[in-house]
């Protein structure tokens, strides 16, 4: 009798484990977009990175974004050079990343098309400095394909990004926009 119970319990455990494993899905892209805009004066200081790595897990909301700082493209090559050499020191700090969670992931119905508001909480690392970030955004579901959009501001001094023109031509706060289709 005890043996029967043990077999039954084992069966239920492995069935539950198998179901949980099947239920979890990891969405990924290597071509997400991150824009930033730090315009402080007349000249536009903005750039885009079209090779953002991002993944998230549908049932936990765990998510990561990673970009190569040298992958940001400016309209002006001189600005790009200054951004990398004088402000971001991208040879020393080649990557920026975000690791966190969509805290209300249970409110997203992946089986139903629509645009769902999401809350995101985590740690953003830029220029070798990690800070907590909390923001909101949307997750659009279309035909089972999720697309995340969000925007938040970062104070450059919080990430020890310093330079001659910050507060003048370069804004003290940069706006970061994220758009990732998985």
């Amino acid at each position: 009798m005890n043996m029967t119970k043990s077999i039954l319990a084992s069966f239920v455990f492995f069935f539950a484990l198998g179901t949980a494993a099947q239920a979890q899905k990891v969405y990924a892209t290597k071509t997400g977009q991150i824009f930033f805009n730090a315009t402080g004066g007349i000249e536009k200081i903005a750039a885009v990175n079209n090779q953002t790595d991002s993944k998230f897990v549908d049932n936990t909301g765990q998510m990561v974004f990673a970009v190569l700082v040298k992958g940001f493209k400016f309209e002006n090559q001189l600005m790009e050079d200054h951004f990398n050499e004088n402000y971001m020191e991208s040879t020393k700090f080649p990557k920026a990343d975000f690791k966190g969670y969509i805290t209300n992931i249970k409110e997203v119905n992946f089986a139903k098309d629509g645009t769902y508001p999401v809350k995101v909480d985590g740690n953003l690392t830029i220029h070798g400095i990690t800070q907590k970030v909390a923001t909101t955004g949307t997750m659009k579901i279309a035909g089972g394909v999720p697309e995340i959009e969000g925007s938040f501001k970062v104070k450059l001094k919080d990430y020890n990004v310093t330079g001659l023109y910050i507060g003048e031509k370069i804004a003290q706060e940069a706006t970061i926009n994220i758009k990732c289709k998985y």
């Binding site: 290597k30 090779q51 790595d53 990673a66 970009v67 190569l68 040298k70 992958g71 080649p94 990557k95």
Partner: peptide, 8 residues
């Protein structure tokens, strides 16, 4: 431009 999961 560096290395994430791929060399970019």
């Amino acid at each position: 431009k560096g290395f994430l999961s791929d060399v970019v």
